[in-house]
């Protein structure tokens, strides 16, 4: 089935098998491998992207459902060669170790901040409940999101 999707600002048209998950479409068809797969039960959040501005687990969506949508992946977050404040926050606060959950964690955090500009630690912890990290114990992820919220004028 033919679909047209705007991904990181560029319109892409492709013929896809209806059963192809959006995450596989991004990774295998378009080479956008920054979006990861970490589980098969929609728990881990490694595959989080933005669909029409909302955080989505792209493993729980068929590519055909995204027809006509605008998608942002981790590759599209940095603008004009400069890192997004959330990316800077993760770097400065050591919010990542192995890095595998990081793209999804950053995308979820950016979406979360859109709805909670002035988050408390508890808000952040609740807001990121859909993203698993096995390395950091979340301590520095929380610090990174807090730092980003302050940098973004929260």
């Amino acid at each position: 089935m033919k679909i047209s999707v705007k991904i990181n600002g560029k319109t892409v048209e492709r013929d896809v098998d209806p059963r192809m998950l959006l995450v596989h479409f991004l990774r295998d068809e378009l080479g956008l491998t920054g979006t990861k797969v970490g589980c098969d039960t929609s728990q881990c959040g490694s595959c989080t992207v933005h669909l029409n501005g909302e955080a989505l687990k792209s493993c729980t969506f068929f590519a055909v459902q995204a027809d006509g949508a605008e998608i942002t992946t981790i590759e599209g977050l940095a603008a004009n060669g400069s890192l997004h404040p959330m990316q800077e926050g993760f770097w400065e606060k050591h919010g990542l170790q192995c890095g595998y959950c990081t793209p999804g964690m950053i995308m979820a955090s950016v979406a979360f901040l859109k709805k909670h500009a002035h988050p408390t630690e508890e808000d952040i912890r609740h807001g990121l409940e859909g993203n698993l990290c096995r390395c950091t114990g979340y301590h520095n992820i929380v610090a990174a999101v807090k730092a980003a919220s302050e940098k973004m004028g929260g």
């Binding site: 989080t48 909302e54 729980t60 979360f112 409940e129």
Partner: peptide
Amino acid sequence: IGDQQVRNF
């Protein structure tokens, strides 16, 4: 329910 992402869709 679930988490941010699940609630969105």
